[in-house]
Amino acid sequence: MKLLVCVSKTPETTTKVSFTDGNTQFNTSGVQYIMNPYDEWYALVRAVELKEKAAGSKVTLVNVGPASNDSILRKGLAIGADQALRVNAEPSSAYFVAAQIAQYAKGMDIVFTGKETIDYNGSEVAAILAELLDLPYISYATDLQVEGNVATVTREIEGGKEIVKVQMPFVVSASKGMAEQRIPNMRGIMQAKRKPLVVREPKKMSDPVSIVQYTLPAPKSAVKLVDPEDMDELVRLLHEEAKVI
C-alpha cells in the first residue's frame, strides 16, 4: 500500500495567542511548535500500523512549509514514516496547501490528514484535496480497517457514528480513537536522520481567501460567586440576568 500522510506544524497547545502589525499577523515570538496532534497521534500512527501489517507498504509524509518545519518531518520519520516531502512555501490558505499536496498524491492508496489543525481549525485541506483528486473522502474517522482494496471506516457524526465501506484510493481525516500516540524511541530517531527528506518548490497560485484582521475575545468581567447554599439565587441569575434559561 502507498500511504500519504499530510502533517502540519502548529503552536503548542498552551500557547498564549497574540498578534502584531495592527492585528494582522500572528505573533510567533516565543511560540513553541509541535506537529498538529491529530496528524501525529492518529493519522500518522494509523498509517504506520497499516504499513507494519502489509509487507511492501510505504508511508510518505508531506508538509507545505518553510525549512524550519523539517524538525516536524524528522519526528514523523522517527515515529515510523519512510520518507518525507516538503513543499517549500508558506501555507497561506487551505486551498494553497491542498493544491500543492495534490501534485504528489496521485497514485497513493490512502491519503491521511488529521481532522483539523489546532491553529486555523479549518478542517478543509482533506476535502479540497479529495475534490482535486476526484476521490471519496471520509471525515473524522475513529477507526480504519483494510481488507484487500476495501476499507471499513467508522466516522464521527453529531452525537454518534457511521460505518462506511470504501474502495481505495480515498482520502480520510483522522480523529481521536483511530490510533494511540507513539513516542519515538532512540532507534527511530537515529534511523530518521538517514531517511530521505526531499524539498520541492511550490507551484504558483493565488489564494481564494486571506486573513485581513485578527481579534481577541473581549476580556471576561470578574466571576460572580454564588453562595453554594443558595442555588435558587443561581437559577434566578441565569434566568433574569443572563437570560439563558
Binding site: 487551505a94 486551498y95 491542498a98 481549525n121 479549518g122 478542517s123 478543509e124 485541506v125 482533506a126 476535502a127 479540497i128 484535496l129 479529495a130 475534490e131 482535486l132 473522502y137 471520509i138 471525515s139 473524522y140 466516522r155 464521527e156 457524526i157 453529531e158 481564494p208 481567501v209
Partner: peptide, 20 residues
C-alpha cells in the same frame, strides 16, 4: 460532520473561496 466534508469540496467545484 457532513457540512465540514462538503465545504472544501464545494470550494473547488464552484471555484469559490471558503471560510469554515
Amino acid at each position: 460532520a457532513d457540512g465540514k466534508s462538503l465545504l472544501g469540496r464545494l470550494s473547488v467545484k464552484l471555484k469559490a473561496g471558503s471560510v469554515s
